[in-house]
Design a protein around this nucleic acid. Structure first.
Length: 149
DNA sequence: GCCAACGTTGGC
DNA sequence: GCCAACGTTGGC
């Protein structure tokens, strides 16, 4: 899951403990949250639009998809007039802080790693919620923990 | 700040 | 259903 750290960083998540992942307004990303994410799933927390961009730590899903109420707040920036409580168009999940990496796994590092070339991050870079293979996940976690240089 | 790569919208 | 115009994302 991607977030701009100046909007909501891994440190913000650590401070809050849990948060709801509002504002996703892309159908592919919505479908992933709604159809694929289950309670207990682990999440790579990616800082986009950062210097440098990269995976900053880990989170986990603590509540499965439910309607994103910010979509029907007419005064909010995530308002969508086509979404309503009766017929919600957008969904969110709740995630909890799990771990901040010793060292951020930068986008450059991921690009340089042969085993990570197939990551959706490198193929469809603008999707804000992406599926990650178990092998990709564990390798990035090891690099982030400093277990692999 | 630029701009490439996409995703969405809406006229036809 | 096509596609041009427009908006957004996010690395650089």
């Amino acid at each position: 899951m991607k977030s701009e750290p100046f909007v909501y960083s891994i440190d913000d998540l650590e401070e809050d403990g849990t948060t709801y992942w509002d504002g996703v307004r892309n159908y592919q990303a919505r479908n992933l949250m709604r159809d694929r994410m289950k309670v207990g799933d682990h999440v790579l927390y990616y800082h986009s639009n950062a210097k440098p961009p990269g995976v900053a730590g880990l989170a986990r899903v603590v509540k499965a998809a439910y309607p994103d109420h910010t979509s029907w707040d007419a005064n909010g920036k995530y308002f969508d007039p086509k979404s309503s409580p009766e017929s919600p168009r957008w969904f969110m999940v709740d995630i909890a802080f799990e771990e901040k990496f010793q060292q951020m796994v930068t986008l450059d590092r991921i690009k340089a790693e042969p085993a990570l070339q197939e990551m959706v991050l490198l193929k469809r870079s603008r999707l804000s919620v992406q599926p990650v293979e178990a092998k990709e996940f564990s390798l990035i976690a090891k690099i982030g923990r400093g277990q692999i240089p």
